[in-house]
């Protein structure tokens, strides 16, 4: 872990010093434990702020949209896939990017740790395998693999797919994980049970749009929820409106979502927002053999036509 951090700093310093990039996007320590924040480093003397540990879950591709300057960006597996999506969608130019790939071993789910230790949490340190949790007067050690974010636990693309240099050795990919376990469980329900399941799932939603803002795919100049003429989606707290919002947000991510988990991480009330997108990911994979952001050479299934596209839903 700290090896990654030193290497990231070293690369960032070199790039800023020789002027090949205007800024480096990475993480620095936040004000609370487990809350690393994204930072834009423009001067070599600020490079020491950069950190890397298991709390860098925010997707940095989100900060690249429509940027014109030369940027070096720290990218784990999912970030790099979102960068590929950005390049395909002409939101950023490949030649303006220097990607510092970070093979990732999963990010921890801070909510699970907070719910276990409450507000007494003082500090969380990370040695790669274990988390050292400091609370008032005592210390505890947790195995990192036990507290991973749900999407990281089922991730099969931990290594960056596109990078200019690496911050460490590539890690072995996980095998034999069931990425769609939750989706399959819901699929087996009857329509009424499904309806109830999502009713319960969405009941705490306060429509803060944190999931939208954290998502690197959501960059429309005017989001559909802000449109008022015509207004397709009601802006109220009505359960139907809330459902429509989540519905449409998920549809906008169809064939583009890399399951980075940023939406779920950002949700202040802990809704499992990935329930929607992972269903679409499963469909994209099963119907078109497509996983978003894996290559620059292929167009996504939703903007190409192939004679063998599935069409049994049409009468």
């Amino acid at each position: 872990m700290s090896g990654y951090q030193d290497k990231i700093k070293e690369v960032a310093l070199r790039l800023l010093k020789d002027g090949s990039v205007d800024m480096v996007i990475g993480f620095r320590k936040g004000t609370l434990p487990m809350m690393n924040e994204p930072c834009f480093i423009r001067r070599p003397e600020d490079v020491h702020q950069l950190v890397w540990d298991s709390n860098c879950g925010i997707n940095l591709a989100n900060y690249l949209t429509d940027r014109k300057e030369k940027i070096a960006v720290v990218a784990k597996g999912c970030d790099s896939r979102n960068i590929v999506t950005h390049i395909i969608e002409n939101k950023i130019k490949r030649e303006n990017l220097h990607i510092i790939g970070v093979p990732c071993q999963g990010m921890v789910d801070k909510r699970r740790i907070i719910s276990e230790f409450g507000d007494t949490l003082l500090d969380v340190a990370d040695d790669g395998e274990n988390l050292k949790i400091k609370i008032h007067g005592s210390e505890k050690s947790l195995k990192k693999t036990d507290v991973l974010q749900s999407n990281c636990a089922a991730c099969i693309h931990r290594n960056p797919v596109l990078f200019d240099e690496l911050a460490g050795e590539l890690v072995p990919e996980q095998a034999g994980v069931d990425r769609y376990a939750e989706v399959n469980r819901v699929e087996a329900m009857s329509p009424q049970e499904k309806w109830q399941y999502f009713e319960d799932l969405l009941s705490p939603c306060i429509r803060c749009y944190a999931c939208r803002n954290a998502c690197p795919l959501c960059y429309c100049p005017t989001c559909f929820v802000d449109e008022s003429r015509p207004q397709w989606v009601g802006k109220s707290q009505d359960p139907i409106d809330i459902r429509t919002f989540h519905f449409l947000r998920a549809y906008h991510c169809a064939g583009r979502c890399t399951d980075c988990g940023a939406c779920e991480r950002a949700c202040p009330v802990g809704i499992k927002v990935r329930q929607f997108t992972s269903k679409l990911n499963k469909d994209a994979f099963e119907m078109f053999g497509w996983e978003a952001g894996m290559t620059l050479d292929e167009r996504p299934p939703l903007d190409t036509y192939k004679p063998n596209d599935p069409n049994d839903f049409i009468k």
Partner: peptide, 20 residues
Amino acid sequence: SPKFFLSALSEGADAVWVSG
């Protein structure tokens, strides 16, 4: 667009039929 059929259904339609 998904906006269309979602708003049709939520505003009281019993079903939506899209035909090309």
